[in-house]
């Protein structure tokens, strides 16, 4: 029998970590943007801005369009945020600190990632708007292309542990982190991690050429929740990357949870920097690269990892 926190504790803990993670992400993203833009950094304004902008969106009224699917529109951010929470719940802060440690944690996390497509399609479909629907279809093409390399990149990390439990996968990295064992795994994971949360160069569904894509019709709370859910998913992807590639809680001097937080923030910086340093990829290119390059590379990664363990 594996560990599970009580439902109340798990919901509060995961919710609090997600909110804190989204705030840290917003500050980091703004900071990186200011560094690239070459503007002076005022710490007070930097720390206050996410809260202020969030409050502004809470006060703005929700907007509607002609003949929307109102239920779908309201549900989409909840589904997306829920999936981010499920994904994050699988990430252990320490061997004994984890919201849920099912024997199939890897499968639960992957299922959450796979279902993101439904949330995004629902979000794009619901407002009855051309650009929003266009963004939804783009994510369909994007998701179908990244799911396989994403799973394969993660699967290779389960081989040394001989288990699909995330706690076991982290435990197996006591002597050597997976990033050393499988050098191709982390870059692959990060590329598809950016795609999952459609951030930066792979922000195709909510892109500037669609004036915001699936989010184009959102205002007020709808916009806040959608942006929050998207950021939460990026936090979950970074946290899982820290667990399965960077040894999770393993590290000297500091307590385990501190290492998890530090490693997560480090991966977040890399993921967010891509948004300020790399141009938008064309969807056709991404689909081509995923099928022709990333899938064979991810397969090779699994084969090599398996062979080294024999």
């Amino acid at each position: 029998m594996r560990d599970y926190a009580s439902p109340g504790v798990a919901i509060v803990a995961v919710g609090a970590i997600l909110v804190a993670g989204v705030y840290v992400l917003a500050v980091l993203d703004r900071l990186l943007g200011m560094i690239v833009a070459g503007t002076s950094i005022r710490l007070g304004a930097l720390l206050a801005e996410p809260v202020q902008s969030g409050a502004l969106l809470v006060l703005q009224e929700r907007r509607t369009t002609e003949r929307p699917d109102a239920a779908g529109w309201a549900l989409a951010p909840a589904l997306f945020g829920g999936l981010a929470a499920v994904a994050l719940a699988m990430v252990p802060l320490d061997r004994d600190i984890v919201a849920a440690d099912p024997a199939t944690g890897f499968v639960v996390f992957s299922a959450a990632i796979a279902m993101v497509m439904i949330a995004i399609y629902l979000h794009g479909w619901s407002p009855n708007s051309a650009f929003a629907l266009h963004g939804a279809y783009r994510y369909g093409a994007q998701a179908l292309s990244f799911q396989i390399p994403f799973l394969l990149a993660m699967l290779a990390t389960a081989l040394p542990a001989e288990s699909l439990s995330i706690v076991d996968i982290v435990d197996a990295q006591k002597s050597v982190w997976n990033v050393v064992r499988e050098p191709a795994g982390l870059p692959l994971y990060l590329v598809v991690g950016v795609a999952v949360s459609f951030w930066g160069p792979l922000n195709l569904p909510d892109a500037a050429d669609l004036a915001g894509g699936t989010v184009v019709e959102d205002s007020g709370l709808d916009r806040l929740l959608w942006k929050g859910a998207r950021a939460a998913m990026l936090v979950a992807v970074a946290a899982m990357g820290a667990a399965v590639f960077l040894g999770g809680w393993w590290g000297p001097w500091l307590p385990g949870p501190a290492w998890v937080v530090l490693k997560t923030v480090a991966l977040l910086v890399v993921l967010l920097a891509s948004g300020h340093l790399l141009a938008r990829v064309r969807i056709e290119q991404f689909v081509f690269v995923s099928w022709v390059l990333l899938i064979p590379l991810a397969l090779l990664n699994v084969f090599v990892s398996g062979a080294l363990l024999l």
Partner: peptide, 14 residues
């Protein structure tokens, strides 16, 4: 801005 590099765009504008 059109290729999602607004921060770099601000540097160029300056």
């Amino acid at each position: 801005v059109a290729v999602e590099l607004g921060s770099l765009g601000s540097r160029v504008l300056r």
